[in-house]
């Protein structure tokens, strides 16, 4: 029975490569509190990619832009356009927030799909897109909530809370509920999409290692981009909504 140890070896190899580890985390302790280290590490990589590429491309802007600068000008125009359509004419101060939101989520999602994180072995858990962790998505969603409250309060002062009894006081509970459903839906949409995408790819790879997962991977890239766009668009829409006047 020479077959069994051999197959055990291959199976173990397959396990190591394609093991799906849902909810497994590498923990770091900081002052009695715990941190998901794999999320932190990948987020640092994402931030490094963003800052590095931006510094290289934009450090010396030319009147006639070349490749890198051209790309980042296009990205900036895209973000400005997005902010302008959602927020309106006073979109200027919100471009950094919306832009960072979009770029961070986009690069995070694509890093999960494109970077070979699994090559790096962790003692526990595995490296994946930062948006694969509920902590990241909830953090971004809560920041969005804070942002739109800030936008409304700074624009209208306490009159901002008048929107809760608009158009009629009967809708007060629903209006209050909305403030909770907004971050909830934002964070769970992103988290669920990215996690599901990663799971589908991993399970398919473990079942059929070649060719079949490729279209799903491309679908995953598409989904990742769309999710980043949706998150940024909705964040901008919420900000715009709380800034617009109700007469």
């Amino acid at each position: 029975m020479n077959v069994i140890p051999c197959s055990i070896k291959t199976l173990k190899g397959l396990y190591d490569i394609s093991g799906v580890e849902v909810g497994q985390h590498l923990y770091w302790q900081i002052g009695g509190l715990q941190i998901h280290a794999q999320v932190l590490i990948t987020s640092w990589v994402v931030i490094a990619i963003l800052l590095g590429s931006v510094i290289i491309a934009v450090r010396n802007p030319q009147t006639i832009p070349t490749d890198g600068q051209n790309f980042f000008e296009y990205v900036l125009e895209f973000i400005r356009d997005l902010s302008k359509t959602q927020i309106g004419e006073e979109y200027g101060p919100w471009v950094p927030f919306i832009g960072t939101m979009f770029l961070f989520i986009f690069v995070s999602n694509w890093s999960g799909a494109l970077l070979p994180w699994k090559i790096i072995q962790l003692p526990h858990g595995e490296l994946a897109a930062p948006t694969n962790d509920i902590n990241t998505t909830v953090a971004l969603a809560l920041l969005t909530s804070v942002a739109y409250f800030y936008a409304g309060l700074s624009k209208k002062g306490l009159g901002y809370f008048g929107k809760y009894i608009q158009p009629t006081p009967i809708l007060l509970p629903i209006n209050i509920l909305e403030d909770f459903t907004k971050p909830l839906s934002l964070s769970f949409r992103l988290f669920g999409n990215i996690l599901a995408d990663e799971l589908v790819v991993v399970v398919l790879v473990s079942l059929v290692p070649s060719v079949v997962p490729i279209p799903v991977m491309f679908l995953g890239l598409f989904t990742s981009g769309i999710q980043a766009l949706i998150f940024a668009t909705l964040a901008a829409a919420y900000i715009g909504e709380s800034m617009e006047g109700h007469h």
């Binding site: 715990q34 941190i35 998901h36 510094i55 960072t100 902590n135 953090a139 971004l140």
Partner: peptide, 25 residues
């Protein structure tokens, strides 16, 4: 599993926003 990762990521995001604003936007 919510823990310190959440505020840390939020802080990282804010830092990234400031940095990108300073060197890019």
């Amino acid at each position: 599993d919510f823990n310190l990762t959440l505020p840390v990521i939020a802080a990282e995001f804010l830092l990234l926003m400031v940095a990108l604003d300073k060197i890019y936007f």
